[in-house]
Simulated assay, not measured.
Amino acid sequence: MADLETLKARKGAVRRSEIPSNVLTALNRGEIETVNLVEFLAVDHAKLFRSTRSQLSLDDKSAKLIAATIKKLADVGVMQRLADTGQVFHQVLDGSEDREAVYQQLAAHPSDVLRNWAAYMDAANAKLTFAQRLKRAKPFAIDDNMGVREIAWMCVRVPAADKIVSQIEKLHPFAKHKNYLMRRFAIELSRPCGVWTKHITALKERPEIAQPLLEFCREDETKYVQDSVANWLNDASKTRPDFVETLCDRWLSETNSKHTQRIAHRALRTLRKKADA
């Protein structure tokens, strides 16, 4: 146990070749979580499933189907691999009395990869309403692991991008939440362009739809949230510069908050570059 605690306190390797063998072994056994992208990309998902299969309430038939799919996904990109793994867990367990037990075992696992599989199980479940997706995403949105937090909003956005527009008010409590990770989740989920995901055309054309979310966070004291708000507005500035300029001007006229000033400065960075070109 002491050895595992020492590994948990490590700094991640800069290159895959520099990952210590005992760290890689522990990652593939599901004993520890990854601490950076280099480690995340180095995890062998097939080995990880074999090592953790006994910790999951899976019958032999289900386990074999999931293992076969994970093996086939070895050569695809990691994001597609995660999505397809979550989908096969959902498909194999859909209607099974063990589904929720397996989901909870994945969601609470020490390995961030298994927690990501759980999040993608929800992404694959077409029966979930938008409100249910938000509720089930909460544990992932406040996860200690940055990678899991990114997966949290993607697993809501990908299957329900249209609901982000039509039911934007359901994100208001998140944007006002006392936990800054919840606030950041609401902003990232609704970004017009986003990262590693499809753009939301309606928000690119009419960013006013999400303006209340931005207003709630315009003086946020947390840099993590400030950056998210600024990136949201920077996205919008590429299609609606008038909206971003007007909003930032009004904010700066209404408050002397250094947090708002930082957000506005970062939000206008693309427009400044265009003006200087």
Rank of each mutant, 00 (worst) to 15 (best):
M1H: 07
A2Q: 15
E5W: 02
K8Y: 06
A9I: 08
N22D: 15
A26Y: 05
L27S: 06
G30E: 01
G30C: 08
G30F: 00
E31Q: 13
I32D: 10
L37M: 13
L37T: 12
V38F: 06
E39R: 04
A42Q: 03
A42E: 00
L48R: 05
R50H: 14
T52P: 10
Q55F: 04
Q55N: 09
L56Q: 09
L56R: 04
L58E: 05
S62E: 12
S62I: 11
S62M: 01
K64C: 13
L65S: 12
A68W: 02
T69Q: 12
K71I: 10
K71S: 03
D75P: 11
D75A: 15
G77T: 09
G77K: 08
L82Y: 06
T85D: 00
T85S: 08
T85E: 00
F89T: 06
F89Y: 12
D94K: 15
S96K: 06
E100P: 03
A107E: 04
A108L: 15
H109N: 06
H109C: 10
H109K: 08
S111A: 03
D112C: 13
D112S: 13
L114F: 08
N116I: 12
W117Q: 05
W117I: 01
A119S: 14
D122Y: 09
D122I: 08
D122S: 11
A123K: 11
A124H: 03
F130K: 09
A131N: 11
F140I: 09
A141L: 04
A141V: 10
A141Y: 00
D143M: 06
D144P: 04
D144F: 09
D144N: 14
D144M: 12
N145W: 00
M146L: 15
R149K: 14
E150H: 13
A152G: 10
M154I: 11
C155M: 11
P159I: 01
A160Q: 05
D162T: 05
K163Y: 14
Q167L: 12
I168K: 08
L171D: 00
P173M: 07
K176F: 04
H177M: 08
L181H: 14
L181K: 13
M182P: 01
R183N: 05
R183G: 09
A186P: 05
A186D: 03
L189N: 00
P192L: 08
G194R: 01
L203A: 04
L203F: 03
P207R: 01
E208D: 15
Q211T: 00
L214C: 06
L214K: 04
E219T: 09
T222G: 01
T222N: 13
Y224A: 01
V225R: 09
Q226M: 07
A230P: 08
N231E: 04
N234T: 10
A236L: 05
A236R: 04
S237R: 03
K238Y: 06
P241M: 10
T246I: 11
L247T: 07
C248K: 01
D249G: 10
E254H: 02
N256S: 14
N256Y: 07
S257G: 04
Q261M: 12
R262Q: 13
R262E: 13
I263W: 08
K274G: 03
A275S: 14
A277W: 12
